[in-house]
Design a protein around this nucleic acid. Sequence first.
RNA 1: GGUCCCAUCGUCUAGUGGCCCAGGACGCUGGCCUCUCACGCCGGAAACACGGGUUCGAAACCCGUUGGGACCA
Length: 487
Amino acid sequence: MTIAFLTITEDIHLTVSDFRVRFAPSPTGHLHLGGARTALFNFLFARHHKGTFILRIEDTDRERSTQDSIQAIFDGLEWLSIDWDEGPFFQSKRLGMYQNTADRLLAEGKAYRCFCSPEDLELRRQEAVAKGQPPKYDGRCRTRTDNPGSPFVIRFKNPDTPEIVVSDLIRGNMRFNGNLLDDWVIIRSDGFPTYNFAVVVDDIDMKITHVIRGDDHINNTPRQITLFDALGAPLPRFAHIPMIHGADRAKLSKRHGATSVMAYRDMGYLPEALVNYIARLGWSHKDQEIFSRQELIDYFDLDKVGSSPAIFNPEKLLWLNAQYIRNAPSQDLAERVKFFLKPVNNPIDYIPPDTRPDLPRIVEEWKSRSRTLLELADAIHPFLDQEFTFSPEVLSKQLTQDNIPLLQAFLDQFEHTAEWNKPSLEHIFHQTGTRFELKLSQLAQPLRAALTGQHISPGIYDVLLLLGSRESIRRIKRAILIAGGQT
RNA sequence: GGUCCCAUCGUCUAGUGGCCCAGGACGCUGGCCUCUCACGCCGGAAACACGGGUUCGAAACCCGUUGGGACCA
């Protein structure tokens, strides 16, 4: 007890840092690969530095935010085992804070009410464009003293800074011309905050020290920086991570096929494999390709994150998944694959227990031959289904009249052997091979076909041992009947 | 169109001025292993976008060009 107590205190004392990061998705669709990677990098950074990882749902866009999307984010993060320390916080429940902050800026003369109608704004914007000027708000209401009583927005009085430097942990310094920014809206006429405003208010309130986000937000950063300044808050460190692109080099989106994290679960990917894959997209640690969760946490840091966009490569993900499947404990895989043996064709529960094959043992034989859980389930199926179907190729090439004597010979010997182990089976094969003057391959293929309905399978002895003597005999009899029935 | 970002094999990347006529991985490919198919093992093809500088020396630093991307409009 004493030792445990000491260990814990020491641990906290020595290693907990003040680093605070957040993942702040907008709930407007499924959790996609890019979002998942942003979440993962924040998570790994927090865990590596013993900091705090916060989940914040940016749901102030009332048209596009949905409850389903919020759930999708939770589901995706849970499946990937990306867990957070604080939150989830919902921006929609923090409207008072945004309003208060805006009021404060108003009182300090750093913001003002703007009564310009959308129609006027659009007109003036078009005029500016026609004159070849940048279409920015002209600051008309800055000095306004009357109050027309019509709807208004609150605008931030953009400070006159010629140059804004964004110091980025990944890209170094990025310089922006401050004169290009205008007096942007912070509170809409319906009282809702705009994106950039809510982000800054929350990042200050949550004491975020490192803003790790997609580089599609780079252009938002100068505005946010001026707001941090106006609010007298210290600047967080920024780290803009590159986007994930599709094969056409454009930002990954629906048209690139499966981009939802959950789609990969449904396709039979292991969450560990997907995490490993997206971690290696834009980040590396020497030549290592496969990382355990702990290695990811130990090795991850921002200085090893690259600055160029990465193209999503499904082939490599598939290979990684195969690696994870091959190296997973068979007992564990057997549990996971059950999800893919759909009830409608899942025979595992109605095969009598005494003849039911041992699922982990079947998985053991198949896991080096399967790249996804879906493939594994398909491969396993004939072993569980006593009435499995024969592939057309097997029917035409193996279950022929010519092969009946061979199958019959195997059947006779199997029925009369007391031993059912590899040496005894090898003995039978040897004898049969001699008698028919056939090589092992010529012996195995017809038998494989009879036993599994397929022309590929694990080693023939393994198949026989897996099925057991009774089921093997039953299957050979069935195959002989079918072969005999063919002309 | 404006602003900003990016640039090593097809793809993910190693590389922080000499260890690089560039290393690893996926994919492709030749072979070995072998009862089929995988796994595994051995080998191969395949890249520093281009042009200028800086330097004794540049994949690496600077400038430009080209190409790609993101955001805003």
